[in-house]
C-alpha cells in the first residue's frame, strides 16, 4: 500500500494572541518569534497514515508545496515515520492559493509510484479555506471522502468513518481516493523520538520544481490564482463594564433585562 500525505507548514497557531502580528500591506501574518509547524490537521493525517503503515505495512510519502524552509516540516514528518519526502518548490504566495496548491500537488502525486490513498488535513490551520482536499481530488480524478477521523483497510479498499452534521457516517471505498482527515482522540499526532529525528536528517528530500512536474512556471505561481485578499486585519475588540443598579436582586434583574433588550441582545 502506498499512502501520500499532503502537509503544509504554517505559523504556529498556538502562539499567544499578543505575539500574533500581521503585516497589513503585505496581507500576511508576520512570523516574528513564532515557529513554523505542520498544520494541526495535517499532523492528524500523518498520524493516520503512520498507524496504517504500522498495522498493515505501507509506504508513506509526504509532500508539501512551499518554500525551502518547508523542509523542516518534511523532516518532522520523516521523524514521525514517513518513508519519503517531496518538496515542491514554490513561493509563499503561490502556496496560499488553494487551486494552485491542488494543481501542483496533483502533478507531484502523479509522478510518484501508484498511490492507493491520498490523505490531507481537513484545513491548513492558518487561512483555513479547507479547499485543497476537494480540489486535489478533482485534479486527480479521484473520489473524496471528507472529514474523516478514522479509517482502516477493508477488503480491497477502505472503510471510513465520516463526520457529518447529522452524526457519523460509515462508508466503504475502493483504493484510489482522497481523504480529508479531522482530529480525533486516536489520531493525536505522536512526538518523534530523538533517534527518529537524527535518522530523519540522514534521509534525502526530493526537490521538484514546476518544470519537473510538466507545469509551466506561471501555472504554479501566485499569478495563476483566482483569489485576491483585499484586506487583512485583527479585529478590534472593545469591552466595557457597566454595573446594573437596583435596590434588590429582583430590580437588578429587571434592569438587566431592560438593558439587554435595549441592546437587542435578547
Amino acid at each position: 500500500m502506498h499512502i501520500a500525505v499532503c502537509i503544509k507548514q504554517i505559523l504556529d497557531p498556538e502562539i499567544s494572541p499578543r505575539a500574533f502580528k500581521i503585516n497589513r500591506e503585505a496581507k500576511l501574518a508576520e512570523q516574528a518569534g513564532a515557529s513554523l509547524v505542520i498544520g494541526p490537521f495535517d499532523l492528524n493525517a500523518l498520524e493516520v497514515a503512520i498507524q496504517l503503515k504500522e498495522k498493515h505495512g505501507a509506504k508513506v510519502t509526504v509532500l508539501t508545496f512551499g518554500e525551502e524552509k518547508a523542509q523542516d516540516a518534511l523532516r518532522r514528518a520523516l521523524a514521525m515515520g514517513a518513508d519519503e519526502a517531496v518538496l515542491v518548490a514554490g513561493d509563499g504566495a503561490a502556496s496560499r492559493e488553494p487551486s494552485v496548491t491542488a494543481k501542483v500537488l496533483a502533478a507531484a502525486i502523479r509522478q510518484l509510484e501508484p498511490v492507493d490513498l491520498v490523505l490531507c488535513g481537513r484545513q491548513s490551520g492558518e487561512w483555513d479555506y479547507g479547499q485543497v482536499p476537494g480540489l486535489l481530488a478533482e485534479e486527480l480524478g479521484l473520489p473524496l471522502v471528507p472529514f474523516v477521523p478514522r479509517l482502516d483497510v477493508s477488503g480491497d479498499g477502505f472503510r471510513l468513518e465520516r463526520e457529518s452534521d447529522a452524526g457519523n457516517v460509515v462508508v466503504e471505498a475502493p483504493k484510489g481516493l482522497v481523504v480529508s482527515i479531522t482530529n480525533a482522540q486516536d489520531n493525536n499526532p505522536r512526538l518523534p523520538k530523538v533517534r527518529d529525528i537524527m535518522m530523519a536528517n540522514r534521509k534525502p528530500i526530493k526537490k521538484l520544481g514546476a518544470a519537473d512536474l510538466g507545469l509551466d512556471e506561471a501555472s504554479a505561481s501566485a499569478s495563476a490564482g483566482r483569489l485576491e485578499v483585499l484586506d487583512l486585519f485583527i479585529p478590534e475588540v472593545d469591552s466595557e463594564c457597566e454595573f446594573v443598579e437596583g435596590d434588590d436582586g429582583a430590580e437588578k434583574a429587571a434592569n438587566l433585562v431592560k438593558k439587554l433588550l435595549e441592546r437587542k441582545v435578547i
Partner: peptide, 18 residues
C-alpha cells in the same frame, strides 16, 4: 544545526505536555 533545532522543538512540545 537543523537536527539540534528539531530536537529542541520536540523537547519543547514534550515539556509543554508532560
Amino acid at each position: 544545526n537543523d537536527e539540534q533545532r528539531q530536537i529542541v522543538e520536540m523537547v519543547r512540545e514534550l515539556a509543554k505536555e508532560k
